[in-house]
Amino acid sequence: MTGRRQTMLLMLPALAMLLLVFITPLGWFFQQSLISDPDAGPLWDTIVSVVTARAVLQAIVTTNWISLLVTATVLLLGYPIAYYLANNRGPRFTLVIFCIVVPYFTSIIVRTYSWMVLLGTHGLVNQALLATGIVHTPVKMLYNQPAIVIGMTYVLLPYMVLTLYAAMKTIDPTLMRAARGMGASGAMIFRRIYLPLSMHGVISGALIVFILSIGFFITPALMGGPSDVMIAMLIERSVEITVDWSSAAVMSLLLLAVTLVLYAIYYRLTDIRRLMGA
């Protein structure tokens, strides 16, 4: 009992901080834009008009599509990297983890601009292609969906790798050895043993990356084309350009609700995993 009370006490500063800098502004924003705003109509009408608007529906589709593409790409790239990390030690491990973690601590804007330097019309990749004669006119690699996916994949890769690595580290290597001794091929060991045992990491990693993707703003705004509008960009436009705060608030609520639902799923999965003693 006292232990529990002590824990609550220790959490108090963090909770107060969260309340002050996150919950309060959020509440204030919703209150201002949806209830106190004299221009706003009845709340329900605003919600209906926002979620039926063509631009919003288009943005929801784009957001989900890009987030799915990014999640799949990050998973395909991240799984082998995490496997390598989980099965190597010493300088190899250090080198790879360094390459994964250092960008993680670098500003997202810096990382996005560095991709623009690489992919631009006069960027390094085009210069290399032109110099080697593979192409004769620069390839348009920026301001389209692939550019967004490349940029977001790079930003989100560490989340996937670190999550998968943590899951793979808990797999007992003697299981693989035992399976091999029982006559299983490498493909069978992966399909029947390693993949199922790392599956909770795959699901957790994919959820984290997807959750982060659907709220992404900077990378798609900088690297995407005019038609690649994600929901966060639409919110920004409503606030900055059309000054339609009530629409912005409804979209924000929508995004927040989806994020919370996905987070609840993520939380349940990790909790179940702990219950299973994995």
């Binding site: 050895r177 035992a178 091999r180 001794g181 029982m182 006559g183 299983a184 091929s185």
Partner: peptide, 9 residues
């Protein structure tokens, strides 16, 4: 290789 030895372990 171990998977071709057919031993029990």
């Amino acid at each position: 290789p171990p998977q071709q030895r057919g031993l029990g372990m």
